[in-house]
């Protein structure tokens, strides 16, 4: 009985699927060749390597500091970094005194309450604060940026397909639209063409230009260098515990391989007289 019902149910599903398949196949064959899509003009992220790549990769502290400088002088005007605290900057090699100074001089103040009157006010940031929001809320952010809200950058290198390579490519990848770009994909007003962006046109104007920052360590401030440095910095903001993770990982793996080898020998030892 089970098998007869099962057989009928099976035939039913197979029939419906077969019918769907035929309908779909006919539609697929008769459908006109679709015109060019945005995807045809979209580029995959460029290949780029960072000091932090691979199981043995570690951050290049000098580069992280340069990247932080680019963030502070360029990106921070619009983009927040809400999950990172000033105190975390000691990871980049800054001393505590330097971190205190960075927090104190940060252009955006931290909301607080006046001790005497209870009114809302602001104060300078301190090391234990997270980076303050650039805009009071999303509506304010949209109003200030032609309706495009600048996203928070804390997790950016983990929150996009292709990760850090995508962030780098986007920053360094602004170019003029190709000559054959159809009208519908042309950048409208307030939009800028970038082939690494899935929709091809984005609201962020090219943020970097040669010589925009002056690096203290003498590195040339080309667009490529700045894009690479700030991307390295954003790898750190997205995954600040990466070095701890890889260090612990190596120790754990060495221990596990040793323990598993012993377990294998013990297993063979226990079974030595048994055929199986």
């Amino acid at each position: 009985m089970v098998r007869i019902i099962g057989f009928l149910v099976g035939l039913g599903f197979v029939g419906v699927l077969g019918y769907s398949l035929i309908i779909g196949a006919i539609a697929y064959m008769t459908e006109e060749e679709p015109g060019p899509t945005a995807y045809d003009y979209h580029h995959h992220a460029r290949e780029i390597s960072f000091a932090s790549d691979g199981p043995l990769g570690r951050f290049d502290r000098q580069q992280l500091q340069r990247g932080f400088q680019v963030y502070r002088e360029v990106c921070a005007a619009c983009h927040s970094l809400e999950y990172v605290a000033f105190r975390n900057l000691t990871d980049l090699g800054f001393t505590e005194a330097e971190v205190d100074a960075i927090a104190d001089q940060w252009p955006i103040q931290v909301p607080t309450v006046n001790e005497d009157t209870g009114e809302d006010t602001t104060r300078n940031a301190i090391a234990s604060d997270h980076f303050p929001h650039v805009y009071a809320n999303e509506v304010a952010g949209r109003a200030a940026n032609n309706n495009a809200y600048p996203p928070d950058l804390s997790l950016m290198t983990k929150a996009r397909e292709e990760g850090a390579a995508y962030v780098y490519s986007l920053l360094a990848g602004y170019e003029d639209p190709p000559a054959d770009l159809p009208e519908e994909f042309q950048p409208g007003t307030g939009l800028y063409f970038n082939p690494y962006f899935a929709n091809l046109n984005l609201a962020m104007p090219p943020p970097l230009s040669d010589g925009q920052v002056s690096y203290a360590d003498g590195t040339e401030a080309t667009v490529e260098n700045m894009a690479e440095d700030v991307t390295a910095f954003l790898i750190w903001t997205a995954e600040p515990k990466m070095e701890d993770r890889k260090n612990l990982g190596l120790i754990v793996l060495i221990f596990l391989i040793f323990a598993t080898t012993l377990a294998f020998l013990a297993y063979k030892n226990v079974w030595r007289d048994q055929k199986h």
Partner: peptide, 24 residues
């Protein structure tokens, strides 16, 4: 002890693979 020994070895291999994913 026969299958506990074999499972101990299996658990080791399992943990190695898990550790590779978790840490790297």
């Amino acid at each position: 002890p026969y299958y506990t020994a074999k499972d101990g070895f299996g658990a080791g291999v399992f943990l190695i693979l898990l550790a590779i994913m978790v840490f790297f």
